[in-house]
Design a protein around this nucleic acid. Structure first.
Length: 740
DNA sequence: GAGTTTGAAACT
DNA sequence: CAGTTTCAAACTC
């Protein structure tokens, strides 16, 4: 007897040393008469008693068990984030000298924090070490204090100055989303680099051309032309047209655009890719972006027949209060090249996602972009696709300022902005899907172009000259015989590009869709006396500035993605981001069309009406005005319910895993025999015990998962019933107390 | 293709 | 800010 007692005591002491000393002083639970009684009732073996010491603490400290699910989620996210760190290639790190240097200056507390979390979440010491190392690599930059940096995303790296931007991105290790983005970005860059796509050495030349452009007279085309040719001579660039139809721009483009805008806003570190443009308005992007995106096949061929002139509003933007904005062209260029240069890069990017250790949907989340307030101009929405097609098309958008989208096929140009601080959810499968679509579209365009006569097969190399000459001819033609020119039946031509039909405004007012969309009028436009042409660039810029002086948001996107938390979670998971989830920023004012015709801007953009609308008799099929608020409320309630359910599930799983109940059962402070009449099972007994320990947590447990506590009473789902039972049990415990 | 309707943009 | 006018797209015939 003594020997066994000693053995038990030793075992208890040993385990307690590893966990807690709280039980070491306690008498062996096996010695308790009540324990013996319980052992006959419950299959739970007392030998685990010592093992539940931690759980015991949890019992007495309910908050440890019912901690905020967000905290858990964050930790898990952090774990996932760290886990994917190895995707960062060594080459990338080595190249990121600046970032590495900054790493030493990185916030030490962040590293410590992440290390702590990792060590807690990862049992494997080796893994933990790796992750910690990665986490250090993950934070090579120093915190600059610029808020905008938090908004940049992987795209920044691609589009502008990878080194700096990576450094910026990786600073945000405490932000799971953005860290994931940066990881992906780095992975992406690493892939690109390893594939020989990026010539890091060359980017210096390209980037140097950019600051020189600042403040330059737009007319000084020769300089930019020389620069462009210089870069081309280096053999890395195939000239890229700026006028990629928005048809081929995906959500990914949106991200690029927004990130570009954000990184540009962030300051000197993120010098924007620069654009030159020829006399015909053709935009030439300087910088690493071009080097990245023009890898592979001749992008120029991909855009034959798609030529459409775009405006260069960058300088205009610099003069306006809307600082820090610049063109979307680079983003378009990226996408165009990614998708056009053999799809390889896109596939690589896709595969990089697959490597992420999370689920499919989560993988997509890693590409989630920061809702950042970018979007599209409604006037750039050209509904040329059939409704049925457009409804299913991925969302696309471009940034408000400095944008240059020339034509559009997708009507679903949606700006996504965060309605809450937590709306860190965006592009998901649609992005990649659209990327593929872009690829296909570009190849289709290429094919079509090859079918055209040679004189129309405009390579980008000679596109500028052609466009300039053609513009002159067109101008003569346009002014000499405007009636002939007018061939308008539809506002869009065959390829989906927008064309206007202005007669009086000279295409210098926002009545003109081309002008409003920030593009030059095309030869296919039927406008008369058009000034919205590259040769009248100053006039165009002046007109634009005038509009913006009256209304800085005159050229801002009109459609915003109203992302509620529910949408962010559920719609992302389901890949259900649709244009209908967006809303018109200022709303429509329809009186007679009932928002079911394209007179209505909401309907035209395939978005529902909202409270911002002043429409009458709204019957918008994408969402009626009256339904807007109600739907949001319902959705919010449902989201809350589901969240609570998930939280309860997680907590009870924790309880089960930690032997929470066993600990409670063998807590010597709660040795309470059950009343035979209530002795449904050991679970009931446990429930009684828990009630004794913490009535509140008991009630909460009943509320969330009564079946766990009352396995024989699965029907007790009514909180009122549960509350009544709880009260009855409380009274019972006070009055009867058969065990005291 | 001409004319009408419509609502945003521009103007006062 | 509100009312009016202008404008061009959308629509109808």
């Amino acid at each position: 007897m003594d020997s066994s007692k000693t053995t038990i005591t030793t075992a208890t002491t040993t385990i307690s040393a590893a966990t807690t000393v709280s039980l070491s002083d306690s008498p062996p639970v096996q010695e308790s008469p009540f324990s013996n009684y319980v052992s006959r009732l419950s299959p739970i073996k007392p030998v685990k008693a010592s093992h539940v010491a931690q759980g015991l603490l949890g019992i007495n400290s309910p908050p440890l068990v019912f901690t905020s699910p967000r905290t858990l989620s964050d930790r898990q996210t952090n774990f996932l984030r760290r886990f994917q760190c190895p995707q960062i290639s060594g080459a990338e790190i080595s190249k990121n000298d600046g970032g590495s240097k900054k790493s030493a200056d990185g916030p030490e507390d962040l590293r410590k924090s992440s290390t702590y979390l990792n060590s807690r979440l990862i049992v494997d010491v080796q893994k933990s070490n790796n992750i910690n190392n990665n986490s250090e690599q993950d934070q090579p930059g120093s915190f600059s204090g610029c808020v905008d940096e938090y908004l940049s995303d992987p795209v920044d790296v691609d589009c502008a100055y990878p080194v700096n931007l990576v450094s910026q991105d990786v600073k945000r290790s405490d932000d799971a989303h953005q860290s994931s983005e940066s990881n992906l970005t780095k992975s992406k860059i690493a892939i690109l680099e390893s594939d020989g796509i990026i010539d890091m050495e060359t980017k210096g030349d390209a980037s140097q051309a950019m600051p020189e452009q600042d403040g330059k007279d737009p007319k000084e085309q020769s300089t930019s032309e020389t620069k462009k040719e210089k870069i081309e001579e280096e053999g890395n660039i195939v000239e890229q047209p700026s006028h990629v139809c928005p048809n081929f721009v995906s959500d990914l483009v949106v991200d690029h655009a927004s990130r570009q805008q954000q990184c540009n806003t962030s300051g000197a570190q993120a010098a924007p890719p620069h654009e030159d443009y020829g006399e015909d308005g053709e935009t030439v992007l300087h910088g690493p972006v071009q080097l990245i995106t023009h890898h592979g096949s001749e992008v120029s061929q991909l855009h034959r027949g798609m030529s459409r002139r775009c405006l260069q509003f960058e300088e205009a933007q610099q003069k306006t209060p809307m600082d820090g904005t610049y063109s979307l062209d680079s983003a378009i260029t990226i996408i165009g090249s990614i998708s056009s240069s053999s799809n390889t890069e896109l596939e690589i990017l896709d595969s990089s996602q697959v490597e992420l250790p999370s689920s499919s949907s989560k993988k997509q989340t890693m590409f989630v972009s920061k809702p950042s307030g970018f979007g599209l101009h409604l006037n750039s929405i050209v509904n040329t696709l059939p409704i049925g097609c457009s409804a299913s098309e991925p969302i696309m958008s471009h940034h408000s300022a400095g944008y240059k989208i020339s034509c559009s096929k997708l009507p679903n140009l949606v700006e996504r902005v965060s309605s809450t601080a937590g709306d860190d959810v965006l592009q998901t499968k649609a992005s990649l899907a659209t990327g593929s679509a872009i690829s296909e579209s570009l190849h289709t365009k290429e094919t079509l172009n090859k079918l055209q006569p040679p004189e129309h097969q405009i390579t980008l190399h000679n596109n500028r000259r052609f466009s300039s000459e053609h513009a002159d001819n067109f101008e003569e033609f346009n002014q000499s015989s405007p009636k002939k020119k007018r061939k308008k039946v539809s506002s869009t031509d065959g390829d989906g590009c927008k064309r206007c039909n202005c007669k009086k405004t000279r295409c210098l007012k926002r009545y003109c869709d081309c002008f409003a969309a920030g593009i030059y009028c095309a030869e296919t436009c039927a406008c008369q006396g058009c000034f919205n042409r590259p040769e009248y660039e100053d006039t165009v810029l002046e007109a634009r500035q005038q509009k913006e002086s009256h209304n800085p948001l005159a050229f801002a996107p009109k459609i915003v993605q109203h992302v509620t938390e529910f949408h962010a979670i559920n719609m992302e998971d389901a890949g259900l981001f649709t244009p209908s989830s967006g809303r018109h920023k200022t709303g429509c004012n329809c009186k007679r069309s009932m928002c079911v015709k394209k007179y209505c801007e909401c309907y035209q953009a395939n978005v529902g009406c909202s409270n911002a609308c002043r429409c009458e008799g709204c019957k918008n099929i994408h969402g009626r005005k009256e339904e807007y608020g109600m739907t949001g409320e319902i959705v919010s309630n449902r989201a809350n319910e589901e969240r609570l359910e998930r939280m309860a599930d997680n907590k009870f799983k924790m309880i089960a895993n930690n032997k929470f109940l066993q600990a409670e059962l063998y807590d010597p402070r709660s040795l309470t025999p059950p009343t035979p009449s209530f002795e449904y099972s050991s679970s009931f007994f446990l429930a009684m015990e828990r009630r004794q320990q913490n009535p509140d947590s008991f009630l909460v447990g009943m509320f969330y998962r009564p079946s766990l506590i009352f396995p024989c009473c699965h029907l007790m789902q009514n909180p009122q019933v549960l509350l009544a039972i709880h009260m009855a049990m409380t009274c019972f415990a006070k009055l009867v107390k058969p065990w005291t």
